[in-house]
Write a protein that binds this DNA or RNA. Structure first.
Lengths: 102, 102
DNA sequence: ACTATACGCAACCACAAGGTTGCGCTTCAC
DNA sequence: GTGAAGCGCAACCTTGTGGTTGCGTATAGT
């Protein structure tokens, strides 16, 4: 299964902001993205590296700049995990209810 | 909107393990939960405190022990956020496709 | 050719996070 | 009432993380 650091990638608010921005703007450079946050370009670049490691963004060199693009697929893993927990929980509630209704 | 530290709470693997265990076992004490992980009771208690702050578990004193119970509701917020990002992304792809098809 | 823009890399810093140990207080069981 | 089981709190240690500054290098534009 794909990198489990997706959860980690989502933990930081700045990173979530970057994802949000990229969800709405096709592609962007580290510099552009840094302007969306109160941080330097390098800080943004580090976050983008984290997101890239988690498989959430694609990097693509275009001349002297690097354009980042969202690849939201790994988010499905998170949703899936949540579903599983939810399902298990529901099962548990069910069996408890059945037990109590005996 | 409820505590945004749900993302933070989910970032740690041990914490996710606790959630998984609680999803399957109704209630448990900090001690019991600590036995599921290679950490001390205190470490587990700290994680449980984090989960509690995120609204993911309920604490309930029963005599000399404290039983923890899962309250998975806040997970819905995470799912929702993911859905929003996904939706926005799809919209973007759509408008791009429309643009290219002109 | 020259200048400005955008990256990449490395050093460095401060603080939060995860973890442990030690100790004292309450509750249960004999 | 005495001992063990559980918890809570605090001190402390170590690492990881988010952030910055500084500098070197490549590309674009004029």
């Amino acid at each position: 299964m794909p990198p489990p650091d997706v959860f980690d990638a989502l933990a930081d608010p700045h990173r979530r902001a970057l994802i949000g921005f990229l969800a709405a703007h096709e592609t962007a450079t580290a510099g552009e993205l840094a302007q969306q946050l109160p941080v330097t370009r390098q800080a943004a670049a580090k976050h983008l590296e984290t997101l890239h490691a988690a498989g959430l963004v694609e990097r693509r060199r275009a001349g002297r700049e690097v354009r980042y693009q969202l690849t939201p697929a790994p988010l499905a893993d998170v949703s899936e995990w949540i579903s599983k927990v939810g399902a298990e929980w529901d099962d548990r509630l069910d069996s408890l209810r059945r037990y109590l209704e005996r």
